[in-house]
Design a protein around this nucleic acid. Structure first.
Length: 401
DNA sequence: CGTCCACAGGAATGACGGGCGG
DNA sequence: CCGCCCGTCATTCCTGTGGACG
């Protein structure tokens, strides 16, 4: 026993069979070259280049599906631009904000400010005040700030285009300095939600990122694999499989890299010498499992109760529950657990959130004389749900009986 | 062909915890 | 320390609605 533990430790201390540098496969790694995106890089570069000569540059709207390199290309071009600006003593500053990560209008504004060295408290100020301080600061340092708003559709869907409107208008009463915007979205139709004035201002230029094809994905993987894996540690067929799987999921390079990294980790844990097809397949299962597990276990209590109701119905062989049935069972579950219940209005809201998350499938159906309701079905495998809820402080007890 | 079911989901409002400037 | 404002979660009240039934 001791010896086996010793050898396990020893394996971790000694060099890995598989990886030379696993970080190359992580999300935030930006390689020195981005294969199959030369066109987009040059395009974005030529749009932003005027800023180096203290000239106005157009706002840009970038769209394309997830994992098509939008973020990587933007960050790459921005970092090169800011390097060049430093070199020539320019005043171009760059700033990157992910709207989904930041969350609210306020935090996005605060986050932009922090790039200019203005510290904004967590909360306490109005968004208008934050923007005001931002404007003052821009004028002060006379900077040309190029702001990337990643996942801008999340901002607009949640809070409307007020912030964007303010940002596009800021230049109008700004003596010195300038603000240019780069909006990134993976939803092509979100433009419809924008006020025409904001839209025309934001999409002075547009860049579209097409999904990678399987062979392009293969090139990308090959490039990273050279840096990440030991020579010969990745089989050709595993690499091909990886590219093929990711290509079938809308040419998502991020997904492909995740697959490769996790497959590598699995192979390493297996003490295998090479990453093979089975590791890739296993990795795909793992990713899906983890995604769902994570989503489920971080849910608020009442969402979990709702899911448990649907889970029980599903286990009883019911195919779909109506809103009324759901709410009845929800009430009884709450009293069983000794938890205060929410109103049906709120439960409906939570249900919609679960639908958006893809955990649940809710469809409005018309039963004519018998009303208009929703048919709700659970979409996650029972096993994962059990695993995610068994540890829950409140819900755990429901599984022991 | 009108009714009326059983909800959907928008708007207004309130409670609450947190952080600000003064 | 206080009064104020914010974001978040939840409630209350409300209007809207597609189609089977009578």
């Amino acid at each position: 026993m001791v010896d086996r533990l010793e050898s396990l430790f020893e394996r971790y201390v000694s060099e890995s069979y598989i990886f030379t540098n696993r970080d190359v496969l992580s999300h935030d790694f930006i390689p020195s070259q981005l294969p199959h995106r030369e066109g987009e890089i040059l395009r974005l570069g030529s749009i932003l280049a005027p800023s180096l000569r203290k000239m106005k540059c157009s706002n840009v709207f970038i769209y394309g599906k997830t994992g098509t390199g939008k973020t990587a290309v933007s960050k790459y071009v921005l970092s090169r631009l800011s390097k060049k600006s430093e070199e020539i003593g320019g005043n171009v500053k760059v700033c990157y904000v992910n709207c989904r990560v930041a969350g609210t209008e306020y935090r996005i504004a605060a986050s932009i400010c922090s790039f200019l060295g203005v510290n904004i408290p967590f909360t306490g100020l109005s968004t208008a005040e934050v923007l005001n301080r931002f404007t003052v600061r821009i004028r002060e340092v006379k900077a040309h700030l190029i702001t990337v708003l990643d996942e801008i559709d999340v901002l607009v869907k949640g809070y409307g285009d007020r912030l964007l409107y303010e940002l596009t208008r800021i230049n109008e009463n700004l003596g010195a300095g300038r603000v240019s915007l780069i909006g990134i979205s993976n939803d092509l139709y979100f433009k419809e939600l924008l006020d025409p004035r904001v839209l025309s201002s934001l999409s002075e230029e547009e860049v579209v990122f097409k999904p990678y094809t399987a062979s392009q994905l293969k090139d990308i993987l090959l490039q990273r694999a050279k840096l990440a894996f030991k020579p010969g540690a990745l089989t050709d067929s595993a690499l091909n499989l990886c590219a093929a799987l990711a290509a079938s999921e809308h040419g998502d390079a991020r997904r492909a890299l995740d697959l490769l990294r996790i497959a590598g980790e699995l192979a390493e844990r297996d003490n295998a010498e090479k990453v093979e097809d089975r590791h890739i397949k296993e990795a795909q299962k793992r990713i899906e499992h983890d995604r769902v597990f994570e989503a489920l276990s971080s849910l608020p209590l009442h969402s979990k109760i709702i899911l448990h109701v649907l889970y029980s119905a599903d286990k009883a062989g019911k195919k779909g529950v109506t809103t009324g049935e759901l709410y009845d069972k929800y009430l009884s579950t709450c009293s069983q657990l000794g938890v205060e219940n929410l109103t049906s209005r709120r439960v409906g809201g939570l249900l919609n959130e679960l639908d958006m998350l893809g955990v649940v499938n809710a469809q409005i159906v018309n039963l004519g004389r018998y009303g208009r309701t929703k048919q709700i079905k659970i979409k996650v495998p029972a096993k994962i749900l059990e695993k995610a809820f068994k540890e829950d402080l409140y819900l755990g007890s429901l599984f022991n009986s």
